[in-house]
Amino acid sequence: MLELRLVQGSLLKKVLEAIKDLVNDANFDCSATGFSLQAMDSSHVALVALLLRSEGFEHYRCDRNLSMGMNLGNMAKMLKCAGNDDIITLKADDGSDTVTFMFESPTQDKISDFEMKLMDIDSEHLGIPEAEYHAIVRMPSSEFGRICKDLSSIGDTVVISVTKEGVKFSTRGDIGTANIVCRQNNTVDKPEEATIIEMTEPVSLTFALRYMNSFTKATPLSSIVTLSLSSDLPVVVEYKIAEMGYIRFYLAPKIEE
């Protein structure tokens, strides 16, 4: 028996909006520690890892480890029917081939039940070691979203370079080039507006902007985004989910052959 009750149902709505265009079908894994997902896009160039810890749910019952295969587009369609202030409860009986999403309005005067068929998805999970990164950039997520959007109107790849001056985002295309430098500025009065750079050594990597723009769909989840970079490793773009966990996007670099 699985019953997960999330008072802040809007978090789950935002998570699906963030991943439904990157990944079509995925397995949600439920265990005592929490509700998680790891999936790659169809080209295996990007990977998303989601964790919602059990403590973040008002009620978390998961009798035994369970993996539920879902079509994320269909799941997003059902979650769109939940109000932003609704409480969302996920329910699944052992051995059943459906999952139920229950939406309760804050005043409990409207209760909705949406039932969706589960799918069999044989997804291979990748082992992702916790790594030491050459550079970690923490910046306003709205700023990062704006940069990716602006640069993608000029070119289709972005070079992200971190030096002691700051982090530089560069692109080039038929009409010309663009360079955006964000300097460290932890003097701002609001912490969520600070740009903080930790660097052990300079790093410069090239990525496809199409995927970066897809990741920024997670912006509504957190006012801060962190970019973790190491030479010749995928970048990790992480949006923390308030007191619950995180959504991490990994993107393989484009490397000079």
């Binding site: 291979e124 990748l126 992702i128 990994y250 393989a252 670099p253 484009k254 490397i255 052959e257």
Partner: peptide, 14 residues
């Protein structure tokens, strides 16, 4: 020529 790498080239299947 820039070659787009894949995630499976960096992390092993569990």
């Amino acid at each position: 020529k820039l070659q787009q790498k894949k995630m499976t080239g960096f992390f092993d299947k569990r």
